[in-house]
């Protein structure tokens, strides 16, 4: 390579040595040790978990701060932008497979294994010998009713309201996106603010709904296979809403500082796509878990 090429023209940007990977390692170490200690009833375990989360937050803040700093000082070439996009693409792919697995398990349980217990399909003998009084239907409390009887969350209650909230947040985000593309910063900031607020409302509603389901409806993680798939699917979705809202809040802060231009706004597009993804997962849940 010619020596006349300056650093910013170099397609490969090599960052300075960074302390953040070590901080990340310490954070994960504290979290895992804390979890292991608290599961075994050791007193300071929960304290270690708190320390782990604080370190994790510090690491995210610092590391992303450095990356933003590098970007804003013009150190990044098109090649770096492209590698961020490739990284996001594969991260998104892993998220797709993550939720595809859970939806797949829901399908398998509902349409295949519960049918066996009810006496159809190639393992129907299970029904004859072990679960002969069991009638297969969905939802089911399971052949032994281990978690006790439970009632379902009313589809027209919080789930429908939360669907409306998430769809509205998708609209406000799309409005913000067009604002960014048309160089209308006010529209970008207003749209993002509304999206984050709607996301927070969604999470609060979901927490209340869980409390109601656990208490009044007796729908718990132990309510047979229905309860466990219900909480795994909706719980991981809720966790993703929190992550998405944090990402959008960071993007909102950066928008207020004027970091994004019509051409340089990868962070916005990555967070926006992620939010649309979380929104679509919820629609899948609304149709496949609450409706069908």
């Amino acid at each position: 390579m010619s020596s006349s090429v300056s650093a910013s023209d170099d397609p490969y940007y090599i960052p300075e040595p960074s302390p953040w990977p070590i901080v990340a390692m310490l954070a994960i170490f504290s979290l895992l040790m804390g979890a292991a200690f608290s599961i075994n009833g050791v007193g300071f375990g929960s304290l270690l978990i708190v320390v782990g989360f604080v370190l994790l937050g510090y690491m995210f803040f610092g590391w992303f701060g450095d990356v933003v700093e590098e970007n804003m000082s013009g150190k990044y070439s098109g090649q770096v932008d492209n590698s961020f996009r490739q990284g996001m693409f594969w991260f998104i792919s892993s998220e797709l497979f993550f939720f595809a697995t859970f939806f797949g398990s829901l399908y398998y349980i509902r349409n295949i294994s519960v049918e066996w217990l009810g006496g159809t399909g190639y393992l129907a003998a299970t029904h004859e010998f072990i679960t002969s009084q069991f009638v297969s239907q969905w939802p089911t409390a399971g052949p032994l009713n281990l978690g006790g009887s439970f009632a379902l969350v009313n589809t027209w209650g919080v789930p429908a309201i939360n669907t409306a909230i998430l769809l509205s947040s998708g609209l406000t985000l799309t409005w913000a996106h067009w604002g960014l593309k048309n160089e209308n910063r006010k529209q970008l900031i207003r749209g993002l603010t509304m999206t984050v607020v709607l996301g927070v409302i969604f999470v609060i509603m979901q927490i209340q709904e869980y409390a109601h389901a656990y208490g009044a409806l007796n729908l718990t993680l132990e309510s047979g296979v229905y309860g466990s798939t219900f909480y795994l699917l909706t719980g991981f979705h809720g966790f993703h809403v929190i992550v998405g809202a944090l990402m959008l809040a960071a993007v909102l802060g950066r928008s207020m500082k004027g970091h994004f231009t019509e051409e340089n706004h990868f962070a916005f597009e990555a967070a926006a796509w992620y939010w649309h993804f979380v929104d679509v997962v919820w629609l899948g849940l609304f149709v496949l878990v609450y409706w069908m």
């Binding site: 609209l171 593309k181 597009e269 926006a272």
Partner: peptide, 22 residues
């Protein structure tokens, strides 16, 4: 998802596909 990786922030194809989505 593909346009996010391919279009490098240029043009309106990503925002259009997400508008269709909503």
């Amino acid at each position: 998802m593909f346009l996010l990786a391919k279009d490098d922030g240029k043009g309106n194809r990503l925002v259009t596909s997400l508008t269709f989505r909503i």
